[in-house]
Every structure is written in C-alpha cells, then in structure tokens.
Simulated assay, not measured.
Amino acid sequence: MDSEREPVRVVVVDDDQLVRMALRLVIEGEPDLTVVAEAADGDAAISVVDEWRPDVVLMDVRMSGRDGLSATREILTRPSPPRVLVLTTFDSDDLVLGALRAGALGFVLKDTPPARFLDAVRTVAEGNPALSPAATARVIAAATGPASRDARDASRRAARKRLAPLSERERETARAIADGLGNPEIAGRLNISVATVKAHTGSLFAKLAVENRVQIALLVRDAEE
C-alpha cells in the first residue's frame, strides 16, 4: 500500500477484551493500518461506525447482546459503508455465511497467523474479498448442510430466478467468480479481455443487486445446490 496514503481506519468488534487488545496490538504495529475504535457488541459497533466512519470493521459474529450478523446487516445499509471482515473461532459457524450474504467481504479465523490476518484486512480495505475458494466451499458446505430439503429448494429457486435474466457470457463470468478466479484468470478462461471481464462483472452487480463478488459466488452456489 502506498506509504503516502492515510492509514486504513479499523474498528475492532469483539466481546472478549483480550481478543480486542490482541488485534489492536497486531494492527497498530503496521504503519498503513490504525485502530480508531473498539466495540464489545453489535449495538455498540453500529454506534461506533456511525461516529468514526472507519474503512474496515473487524466483526465478531457470536457476541453477547446483538450478534455480528445483525450488526453487519445494519452497518451495510449506511451510505458509503465500511468494508466488513468477519472474525470467527469456527469455520463452520453458520453466522459467517449469513454475514457474507449480507455483504461482508470475507472472514478470518481468530487463530489466523498475524501476517495472513493483516493481508486480509488490507485486501478487504481495497474492496476485494478475503476468501480463498477452499474456505468459501468449506463454510458454505458446513453452514448449509443441515438445512431442510424444503429450505434448500426454496433457496435454489430464488437464486435461479435472480440469475435467469443474465446473458450466457454473464453466467460464465458469474460461474468463474464462484470458482474463486480473479479478473485475469477469468479473461483467460473465457478468452476475453480483462476490460470485458470488468464490464460483465459490473453488469452482474447491477442485475443481481449485489455489492461484491462474494455475494455473486454465494448466489451461484445456491442455484446449484
């Protein structure tokens, strides 16, 4: 990240004070990142975000009081909302999937090595998803596995209805995004230019009414369940 830019402003949300302190120590050791505030539950997180208008929110999902999923949904309704990176102890936490559907750009486990954790914060700050394809598949499988057949069928029908207006090339782009490919890789797979990939992706955002690529990936996977 350009050293002349203002540091990325981060809010840390977790109901464990020791976790907040540890995350602050890791983040404050980086010249391009700074923690501007902390919160111990979802309600406090919303207030802090409204006050400080951070670039990134590190959001725990399971907290006493208002949970991170509910808080994420409300925060992302704000004008020019911050990027949300979900914190969790378990990669099978069903609230993680809910947060991703709500618009969070990724998730990290709390025991992620510091270097990878900081990379995730920077990636999300730039508007890119911090989720590997393997992690995406693992969370989705864990979170949707126990769902009833009726619930899965309803989710599949809804997803297919949303995808129906897409052109064939837009569908191919959405499928590639769901596979975790970046723009250059998608261009190579579809034998088109990166500029065309960006155009198709922008069209997907508009037609599907989504905010990021993670939501596109989840929608494609819903349709295929």
Rank of each mutant, 00 (worst) to 15 (best):
141 A>S: 15
141 A>M: 09
141 A>T: 13
141 A>H: 10
141 A>R: 14
142 A>T: 12
142 A>Q: 09
142 A>D: 13
143 A>W: 07
143 A>N: 12
144 T>P: 07
144 T>N: 10
144 T>F: 11
144 T>I: 06
144 T>H: 07
145 G>K: 08
145 G>F: 08
145 G>P: 07
145 G>N: 12
145 G>E: 13
145 G>Y: 13
145 G>L: 09
146 P>I: 02
146 P>F: 12
146 P>E: 09
146 P>K: 06
146 P>G: 13
146 P>T: 04
147 A>F: 15
147 A>P: 00
147 A>E: 14
147 A>C: 09
148 S>Q: 05
148 S>E: 05
148 S>C: 05
148 S>R: 12
149 R>G: 02
149 R>W: 05
149 R>L: 11
149 R>C: 01
149 R>Y: 01
150 D>A: 10
150 D>I: 07
150 D>K: 02
150 D>V: 08
151 A>Y: 05
151 A>G: 06
151 A>P: 02
151 A>L: 14
151 A>K: 08
152 R>I: 10
152 R>T: 02
152 R>F: 02
152 R>K: 15
152 R>W: 03
152 R>N: 07
152 R>S: 04
152 R>D: 01
153 D>W: 00
153 D>R: 08
153 D>V: 03
153 D>N: 08
153 D>I: 03
154 A>P: 06
154 A>Y: 00
154 A>L: 15
154 A>H: 05
154 A>R: 14
154 A>W: 08
154 A>V: 13
154 A>Q: 12
155 S>Y: 00
155 S>W: 00
156 R>H: 04
156 R>L: 00
156 R>W: 00
156 R>P: 03
157 R>K: 10
157 R>L: 10
157 R>I: 02
157 R>F: 04
158 A>L: 09
158 A>I: 06
158 A>S: 14
158 A>C: 05
159 A>M: 01
159 A>I: 03
159 A>D: 03
159 A>F: 02
159 A>W: 05
159 A>K: 00
160 R>A: 00
160 R>P: 02
160 R>N: 09
160 R>Q: 13
160 R>H: 03
160 R>W: 00
160 R>T: 04
160 R>K: 11
161 K>F: 12
161 K>G: 03
161 K>C: 07
161 K>A: 15
161 K>V: 05
161 K>Y: 14
162 R>T: 01
162 R>Q: 12
162 R>F: 03
162 R>M: 10
163 L>N: 02
163 L>A: 01
163 L>C: 01
163 L>F: 06
163 L>Y: 02
164 A>P: 09
164 A>D: 15
164 A>Q: 15
164 A>C: 02
164 A>H: 15
164 A>L: 11
164 A>W: 11
165 P>F: 11
165 P>Y: 09
165 P>C: 04
165 P>K: 05
165 P>Q: 08
166 L>Q: 04
166 L>H: 04
166 L>D: 07
166 L>E: 09
166 L>Y: 03
166 L>A: 04
166 L>V: 06
167 S>F: 04
167 S>W: 09
167 S>G: 06
167 S>A: 13
167 S>L: 10
167 S>Q: 11
167 S>E: 11
167 S>M: 05
168 E>N: 05
168 E>V: 04
168 E>L: 09
168 E>Y: 01
168 E>S: 08
168 E>D: 14
169 R>A: 11
169 R>W: 06
169 R>S: 13
169 R>Q: 15
170 E>V: 08
170 E>S: 07
170 E>R: 10
170 E>N: 06
